[in-house]
Computed example of a mutant assay.
Amino acid sequence: MFVRTRISCDSPIEILYYSSRKPGNYPICYYYGESEGLVDSSQSLKERFKQIYPLCEGCQGNKKEFYTKGEIKTNGRASKRHKT
């Protein structure tokens, strides 16, 4: 088990919450923990990132942006070079 010691009320939700398959885990805002008023991410974000964490209207109004992870590589950057 790992416990973060420098956690505060200003700390975002831990990533492990979102990756857990535990029943009862539902989408909550990455920054605030709110389950109501979640904002849909744009199609361009969905095309650029593998993971987009939930964001509520309140945080969006406070100029926070979607927390993203795993940029999708395009234009051949994802393919490996083969020796010839």
Rank of each mutant, 00 (worst) to 15 (best):
I13S: 03
K73S: 11
I15K: 11
Q43V: 06
I15T: 15
C29A: 05
D40M: 07
C56M: 01
G58R: 01
L38G: 06
Y26I: 15
C59N: 01
K22M: 13
F2M: 12
R77V: 07
D10R: 14
G24E: 12
I52R: 03
A78K: 09
S44I: 09
Y32A: 12
R21W: 02
E34V: 15
S42K: 08
Y53M: 02
S19M: 13
Y32R: 07
Y17K: 04
D40V: 07
C59I: 00
Y67C: 04
S11V: 08
S41D: 10
K69E: 13
F66M: 02
R48W: 02
P23A: 09
V39I: 15
K64M: 09
E36C: 12
P23S: 10
S42D: 10
I15C: 05
I15M: 10
V39G: 03
I52E: 01
E71V: 04
I13W: 01
S79T: 14
D40F: 04
S44D: 13
I72Q: 07
S44M: 12
P12R: 05
F49V: 00
R6C: 07
K46R: 13
K63L: 07
N75F: 09
S79R: 09
G70I: 01
C29Y: 00
G37E: 07
N62F: 08
I28R: 04
Y17M: 05
P23C: 06
C29D: 02
G70R: 05
R81H: 13
Y30M: 13
K64P: 00
R6S: 13
D40A: 10
T5D: 15
S11W: 08
T68P: 00
I72G: 04
G61Y: 00
C9R: 11
S8Q: 10
S44G: 10
M1T: 03
K22Q: 15
H82T: 11
R81G: 12
P23D: 08
G33E: 02
Q43P: 02
Y31E: 06
E57T: 07
L55T: 01
K64R: 13
S20R: 11
T5P: 04
Y31K: 08
K83E: 04
Q60A: 09
K50E: 05
R81I: 13
A78F: 10
P12W: 04
R21F: 03
S11T: 15
G61T: 00
K64G: 00
S19W: 15
K46W: 01
I15V: 14
E65G: 08
P27E: 07
K63H: 05
D40H: 04
G61Q: 06
L55Y: 02
S11L: 07
Y30Q: 10
E71S: 03
S41N: 12
Q60F: 01
Q51N: 12
T68V: 10
T68L: 00
L45N: 08
R21K: 14
R48C: 08
V39S: 03
P54V: 05
R77D: 11
L55I: 14
